[in-house]
Amino acid sequence: MSDPDISVVICVYTEDRWEDILAAVSSVRAQSRPALETLLVVDHNAPLLDRLAKEYKESAQVRVLANAGPRGLSAGRNTGIAAARGDVLAFLDDDAVAERDWLRHFAEGYTDPRVMAVGGRTVPIWASGRRPHWFPEEFDWVVGCTYKGLPPGRVQVRNVLGGNASFRRSAFDVAGGFATGIGRDGDKRPLGCEETELCIRLTRARPEAILLIDDRAVIHHRVPETREHFGYFRTRAYAEGLSKALVARSVGTDKGLESERRYATRVLPAGVARGLRDAALARPGGAGRAGAIVAGVLTAAGGYVVGTLRTRRGAPAFSVAEIEEGGA
């Protein structure tokens, strides 16, 4: 498949992101390598569905669909998968814009028939105009962005990151769709890892499959002011621990935590050391970054322990109230 047709799926859920949604679609329309179509999947929000349908009623390239499954990002993506016509499906967050060559770099990855998924690099756009001094780059996954510790270039990985990723259609034929109950449900549950679970299932079903990240396939992701605070950082880290427990239950701890072991034993200690060195040199935020890394690790570990114990008892891994309080 040297020149695959690519369908772009953007899952949306709130009118609060109206301008962001329009910007995301515009960035797809401006691609140097055109998309076959753009699918906007609306998550159980009838007014938003109607408004988008009117906005794009004259467009042959943009289709507006209602999420056909339960509320949440995974079911929305599965709705897009079922409706898309492309050989490759690319996923873009509703509060992100893609650089002009985003799809071109994705398409280049599929010249090798063994490649089943290609992800890209996600750069934060901070609402305050700059990264908070205390916020470590090693934890940029907290705000849905590429984090320090991922290798540069085009490299083989265990899993792509869902807000900036593409898959061959045949990947879903082999592995099925995204698992519901793991990923996000609007803003209520800041969970994740649904793409991790899918990628592990995919490589188990097709051991020869290659999954890539190409850091030239860049999108810019908006980080709202509410996510620039330590309270959200802590909440999201705890939710990540719960999510990892669900993934480990689904695919086993060996694969479910394979990348996380390297991250925890190599990337994060190096980040703490850099933060302490910066503090010793009186550079802004050094001590805060070191402290945030330690706090993030402990909070995520606590979420993982709680989620593991609950799933072993057959209880839900989380409650909405608990996640909203960050595990307190």
Results as ranks from 00 to 15, higher is better:
Met1Tyr: 10
Met1Lys: 11
Ser2Ile: 12
Asp3Thr: 13
Ile6Leu: 09
Cys11Ile: 10
Cys11Pro: 09
Tyr13Glu: 11
Asp16Ala: 14
Glu19Tyr: 11
Glu19Arg: 13
Asp20Met: 12
Leu22Glu: 11
Val28Asp: 07
Ala30Pro: 05
Arg33Ala: 12
Arg33Ile: 05
Leu36Ile: 00
Leu40Thr: 10
His44Gln: 10
Asn45Gly: 04
Leu48Ser: 07
Leu48Tyr: 05
Leu48Asp: 00
Leu48Gln: 02
Leu49Phe: 14
Leu49Arg: 10
Leu49Asn: 07
Arg51Lys: 12
Leu52Gly: 04
Ala53Ser: 15
Lys54Asn: 13
Glu55Pro: 05
Lys57Tyr: 09
Ser59Ile: 06
Ser59Cys: 10
Ser59Asp: 15
Gln61Asp: 15
Leu65Gln: 03
Arg71Gln: 15
Gly72Tyr: 03
Leu73Ser: 09
Ser74Val: 01
Thr79Glu: 07
Ile81Ser: 03
Ala82Met: 07
Ala84Asp: 02
Arg85Gln: 14
Gly86Met: 06
Val88Asp: 04
Val88Ile: 14
Leu89Asn: 01
Phe91Asn: 09
Leu92Cys: 02
Asp94Trp: 02
Asp94Gln: 09
Ala96Gly: 06
Ala96Asn: 04
Ala98Pro: 07
Glu99Thr: 10
Trp102Asp: 01
Leu103Gly: 00
Phe106Asn: 02
Gly109Lys: 04
Thr111Val: 13
Pro113Gln: 08
Met116Thr: 09
Gly120Asn: 07
Thr122Cys: 09
Thr122Ala: 14
Val123Asp: 15
Pro124Ala: 06
Pro124His: 06
Ile125Leu: 15
Ala127Leu: 03
Ser128Pro: 07
Arg130Phe: 08
His133Tyr: 08
Glu137Arg: 14
Gly144Glu: 01
Thr146Gly: 05
Thr146Met: 04
Gly149Ala: 08
Pro152Ile: 03
Gly153Lys: 01
Gly153Ser: 08
Gln156Gly: 11
Val157His: 03
Val157Ile: 06
Arg158Asp: 14
Arg158Ile: 10
Asn159Arg: 11
Val160Gly: 03
Gly162Phe: 02
Ala165His: 00
Ala165Tyr: 00
Ser166Arg: 03
Phe167Ala: 04
Arg168Pro: 02
Arg169Leu: 09
Phe172Thr: 08
Gly176Arg: 02
Phe178Gly: 00
Ala179Ile: 08
Gly181Cys: 06
Arg184Thr: 13
Asp187Lys: 14
Lys188Cys: 09
Lys188Tyr: 12
Glu194Asn: 11
Thr196Tyr: 15
Ile200Arg: 06
Leu202Pro: 01
Thr203Leu: 06
Arg204Gln: 13
Ala205Asn: 07
Ile213Arg: 14
Thr226Ile: 09
His229Asp: 11
Phe230Gln: 11
Gly231Ser: 13
Ala237Leu: 09
Tyr238Asn: 00
Glu240Phe: 13
Leu242Phe: 01
Ser243Asp: 02
Leu246Ala: 11
Val247Ile: 04
Ser250Gly: 05
Asp254Gln: 12
Ser259Met: 13
Val267Thr: 15
Val272Pro: 09
Val272Ala: 10
Val272Ile: 15
Asp278Trp: 08
Ala280Asp: 11
Ala280Val: 03
Ala282Glu: 11
Arg283Gln: 15
Pro284Ile: 08
Gly286Ala: 04
Gly286Phe: 06
Ala292Tyr: 07
Val294Arg: 12
Gly307His: 05
Arg310Leu: 09
Arg310Thr: 05
Thr311Trp: 08
Arg312Asp: 05
Arg312Thr: 09
Arg312Trp: 12
Ala315Asn: 07
Ala317Pro: 04
Ser319Ala: 15
Ala321Lys: 13
Glu322Tyr: 02
Glu322Asn: 07
